[in-house]
Design a protein around this nucleic acid. Structure first.
Lengths: 203, 203
DNA sequence: TAGCTAATTAGATATATATTAAATTAAATC
DNA sequence: GATTTAATTTAATATATATCTAATTAGCTA
């Protein structure tokens, strides 16, 4: 369960018109600090200030080229956090105190049982688990078979998923909703594993 | 297109730990101002202050009973606003200057052509349009056939959708994502038409 | 190395807002 | 009508933060 503070910080980051305009500008492509300052009519120092807040909640990425720094949107988190809050509010009831068994062992056991239950002997997916935790196990298992860093067209993704289940549209959407897959324009890419894990800590 | 200010105000409303805790408390049911003050360890005046902010962005409802006021969550907006921002940022590119033709005529013409293109002669849905505007037309057309105010189980919703398309899971999700349908616990309900329209103005 | 450009940091200021106590209003009950 | 309970408003205060200028740091290039 994501901490209150993180959700609040996230909303604080978005609770400022200048930062929101920054994000909108960045949605059209990366920009340097100076360029942002120019377009927003603010000083470079102010850009740094806001960039720090956005970075703190992983909403922007930065890369250095020569002595300029290019800012860009982190699409993962833009989508991921958005639903984290509704989860916080809608899914409270399902919280349970944890038992004595070590977490890692318990997770591994669950993972094996879920894969056994939801995958056929031929390696096809029977159906998508409805419980979030189980769903993530299945999605992760499938996503692992995608090559990290490689770009896929939508068709390629569909064909990939079809190997396991006919309803590729739903599963593709689940991949994106749960941050296993990332879509930019018409191109899909597997998110790095650390993103999967970061996302999980949010929910 | 939703105004920047509204999105910012919405995030401001959620950018405070006390208000977030209020929402979490209210997610378990309605409470009076005094009850909230007690549970949150703050003065009644502070509750009023925060309630005003949450009300300003339609996140809470109020009802009077005797001389107490009961606050409750507005689930519609909790879900609706959340994705409005990603839309703001992801769909900018598709904006176009509008032509001379009156808006209403244009919309009606689009609606007819979309329904003709995506529905079979037998009244089944061929597939879900990928363009947002067209998708909304199809979803609205289907949602109109649900009875407002009536509660449906998930199974009933599935059977309803299956009349039109086998992939009820996807369509059910789309209904919820686009605020045509509202889920509380395991029960589904059609949102009132005004909610559909309010939601559309957000995107 | 010196000089240039971009970005950050530090310090200062002004605005916004979260909070409370006290006064006031609203509704219900005696 | 007087009293009680709940909520709001008002006024005051303290904290947070958005912004700028000026000084500093980081990296490039002549």
């Amino acid at each position: 369960m994501m901490q209150l503070d993180k959700i609040v910080s996230y909303h604080k980051a978005l609770a400022d018109p200048t930062r929101m305009r920054m994000l909108i500008l960045l949605s059209e492509g990366e920009l340097t600090g100076l360029a942002l300052a120019g377009k927003l009519c603010i000083s470079p120092a102010t850009v740094t200030h806001h960039a720090a807040k956005l970075r703190a909640v992983s909403l922007v990425n930065e890369r250095r080229e020569k002595n300029a720094i290019y800012f860009s949107l982190n699409h993962y988190f833009l989508q991921a956090y958005a639903s984290a809050m509704s989860q916080l509010i809608n899914q409270r009831a399902s919280e349970e105190p944890n038992e004595n068994e070590p977490m890692d062992e318990k997770n591994e056991r669950l993972k094996q049982s879920v894969l056994k239950n939801f995958m056929t002997a031929e390696g096809k997916l029977k159906h998508i688990p409805s419980q979030l935790k189980k769903k993530r196990i299945v999605l992760e298992y499938l996503a692992e078979k995608l090559e990290p860093g490689k770009s896929y067209t939508e068709k390629e993704i569909n064909r990939f998923i079809e190997q396991f289940h006919p309803d590729y549209a739903t599963i593709r959407r689940e991949f994106i909703m749960h941050a296993y897959l990332f879509r930019e324009q018409e191109i899909y890419e597997r998110n790095p594993r650390e993103m999967w894990e970061k996302w999980e800590t949010l929910s």
